[in-house]
Design a protein around this nucleic acid. Structure first.
Lengths: 165, 165
DNA sequence: ACGACACTTCAGAAATTTCTGAAACTTCGG
DNA sequence: CCGAAGTTTCAGAAATTTCTGAAGTGTCGT
């Protein structure tokens, strides 16, 4: 008759593992390690919001490390500080549009690539093989920078169909 | 009357700077530093192909570092080894579809994220806030994994319109 | 077969990133 | 105003990533 309890323990374990995997993947994708682990906590916590202290406890990390991670997640717009509910502790939670934002943050990098390509195209002669390569690179990033916003629009519509009117 | 020469020198300088900037951006995007610098060489070189030795000279790096970088670029499919033209040295060049591939390589990361989200959704109860968050995450990545191939198709068509028939 | 040249591998050095611990700062309750 | 709880900052420690140098491997020309 302890099947239910055992099942619950299994689920907890699996959740923890999934969170860890997620953090590793996010880290490979360029996020700092601690920021990635923190983001995983925001996703998998069973509370509506968490404090820095709770994150530190859950990750067994120092308050300092958590503070830095939270700051960086805030700056990218993935989490938000909640209007203080009369407590001394700051509460944070995942933003509703976190995923779209995570994706959007690529745009900065794309802009930089595009600029580098443009400079290359301009300073390079017609017959130079580099000119052809850089032109193609420029065209690709121009295309992408145009497509991404459209894609995110489709996502938002996909999520909440027919809000218009 | 040395205007032309001066202009050429300026261009070279700018090209080098653009290449450096590009390498930094690529590195921030997750590519290893040396791999990023090497990729920049492939882009900006005025030759059709380059050898590992030439890259090492251009970047003032050790042969070992270049070897590793080339290997990793090969494994991601951004460059290709040219059928040896009877020389002892291996020649490499940027692949024609390098940019699409660079973008596509994200798919692996996306798959991992999706899997983590699915595990989370399955092991989480209806009323748990985590369930809602993980469901949204899952939906986002499912959507994206569906959209990306379509986007790359549009890019390929955009590049070489009307090949059909 | 041999020698020369180019590339690869890998152990350890160097550089960089990331984390901790402790002190400083802020804010709330009394 | 003071004290406690929570958070932030930051110097230096720890961990990780990245590179070099040297030895090893393979291949081509002779």
């Amino acid at each position: 008759m302890s099947f239910v309890i055992l099942r619950a323990m299994n689920d907890r374990q699996e959740q923890w593992q999934a969170a860890e995997r997620l953090a590793l993947t996010l880290a490979e994708g360029g996020l700092q390690r601690m920021a990635a682990r923190t983001l995983a906590v925001f996703l998998f916590t069973d509370q509506d919001s968490v404090t820095a202290g709770e994150i530190a406890e859950r990750l067994d990390a120092s308050a300092g490390a958590v503070s830095g991670a939270v700051k960086s997640l805030l700056s990218v717009g993935l989490i938000e500080r909640l209007p203080a509910p009369g407590s001394r502790r700051e509460h944070y939670r995942l933003r509703d549009d976190a995923w779209a934002r995570l994706f959007t943050s690529q745009n900065t990098a794309f802009q930089a690539m595009l600029q580098a390509a443009r400079t290359g195209v301009e300073t390079t002669a017609e017959h130079d093989p580099a000119h052809r390569r850089l032109t193609q690179m420029r065209d690709f990033y121009e295309f992408m920078l145009d497509e991404i916003p459209a894609m995110l629009d489709r996502w938002r519509r996909h999520r909440q169909p027919d809000r218009r009117m």
